[in-house]
Amino acid sequence: MAESVLRRESAGDVFRRMRRGNSGNIVLLFIIVQLVAIAAAIIFPEDFRYLSMGNIQLMLKAIPSLVIIVIGVNLLMIAGEFDLSVGAIFTLTALVMAKLFNAGIPLWTSVLAGLACGVLMGLINGFIVVKSNVPSFIVTLGAMWFWRGIILIISSSITESFYPSDFFTKLFTVNVGPVQVQFIWALAIAVIGWLILDRHSLGNYFLGIGGNRKAAAALGIDTRKIKVVAFCITGFLTAIAGIMSTVRINSISPIQGQGLELQAIAACVIGGTLLNGGKGTILGAFLGAALMYTIQDVLLLLRAPGHYLQMFVGIVIVIAAVLNEAMRKE
């Protein structure tokens, strides 16, 4: 009968699989951008201080907040949904924590309350989306405006300061070698995100539901429950990012976090995540976020005005989406 036609995958297969998984492209792009920036820094060490310790530290400080949000948004997008309210979740959870702490509530209770708020806001988003069948784009757009309003009410439009215990501050700001510990937390969360997406049945369901919701349901998956879980994870991770950022800068302003929702989606798309779900990697999303900050940093070092960054990110996100779509068809 049949000889075994199965064989081990060759290196070429692995590469093709990586490209299909889409992290291959972003890795390549990321490396190229880094090489160009590093080469420029070596050639013009005085004018382009990309490799100076100060610049590297600044970048590594800026990246973690966005990366942590992006991990959550990426999982959600892979499951086929959006969350436009992450910017508001980011601010409100941090605000709740700071307000409670400043009102004399114990630190850890305040932190847990902030995290619980994030999960609850994700839960509300998810619940409305799966119960109403209204696209999450609209539901979370509404949620964004609603929570932004709540933020202005409870903050009275004033920046809330936050000076927690020394230990808690160090937990998020101490330097480990050249990097601030926040970067290590972000890496750890990325690894957990990868474990969930790639090595856990939950991630398998995110991919399956995003890839073919009908099939997933017919194979016995409670697609609504899984989607709600994805919203909750996004809310939770966003709350962590909000809290970490607040500890770092010792305050939370009511306008903080605006635009984060679109930056997060942009990072995912640049990282190869499909807008209609079913495809995406944690590595891609991580590098997508890192790439956005790299571009921002390079433009700053070149003393380009801020709006160049917006134009540039705008172009990159459309190109990335076009490439993703072309690869999907291929």
């Binding site: 398998n204 399956g208 073919n212 998956i221 079913g278």
Partner: peptide, 18 residues
Amino acid sequence: MNLIDVMDIMRNIFFGRE
């Protein structure tokens, strides 16, 4: 057929019963 195109054969076979 209820297969998930974006997943590999192994994950399709075990989907929902991993």
